[in-house]
């Protein structure tokens, strides 16, 4: 078993830790960095609850080793609001009731953030396909779709914080 010293930028903060090679990125984020906003929902890369952005791309952090993220830029749900201002996606989820128990919400928001970065004006169909790697058991998805559409409109208006993908 090898141990590795890794350095990465997480939510604009550079962190360095020594870890076991087998440490999953999600455990590293939750345990080593105490960023518990990224939860775990399954073992089979199915649910997307643990979604974070690695170098701007939404990935399931349960299916990547922390050591693989050495040198990467990572954004978790804790880094989405900037200077105390909610990101349009966060506003959208709140306004449109895009969450209930809140457990899938961070993953949904991170997925949606990547989706909107690639496709700023998605149709309902594109939103549904875009979040199809994230399971929600509470909402029935209607209001999540509305929340993401709300954010797309806000971002298009240009008064949102998230128009620039700083982590890309």
């Amino acid at each position: 078993m090898s141990r590795h010293k890794i350095t990465m930028t997480v939510n604009d903060v550079e962190v360095t830790r020594e870890i076991e090679s087998r440490n999953l990125l999600v455990h590293f984020i939750r345990e080593d960095l105490s960023l518990t906003g990224t939860p775990i929902g399954c073992d089979t890369t199915s649910c997307g609850a643990c979604t974070v952005l690695v170098n701007g791309r939404a990935i399931k952090s349960c299916t990547m080793f922390a050591v693989q993220a050495n040198g990467a830029t990572i954004e978790t749900i804790e880094g989405v609001a900037q200077n105390g201002d909610l990101h349009p996606l966060q506003q959208g989820f709140w306004e449109k009731h895009g969450l209930q128990c809140g457990y899938c919400t961070p993953g949904m928001i991170m997925s949606a953030k990547h989706l909107l970065a690639e496709n700023p004006n998605p149709s309902e169909e594109e939103i549904r396909w875009g979040i199809s790697g994230n399971l929600c058991r509470c909402t029935g998805y209607n209001k999540i779709v509305e929340a993401i559409r709300y954010a797309a409109d806000k971002l298009a208006e240009g008064d949102g914080e998230g128009t620039e993908e700083t982590s890309a």
Binding site: R57, A58, I59, L115
Partner: peptide, 9 residues
């Protein structure tokens, strides 16, 4: 293939 998040990796 799989889902969009999986396809990113």
């Amino acid at each position: 293939i799989a889902d969009p998040l999986v396809r990113n990796l």
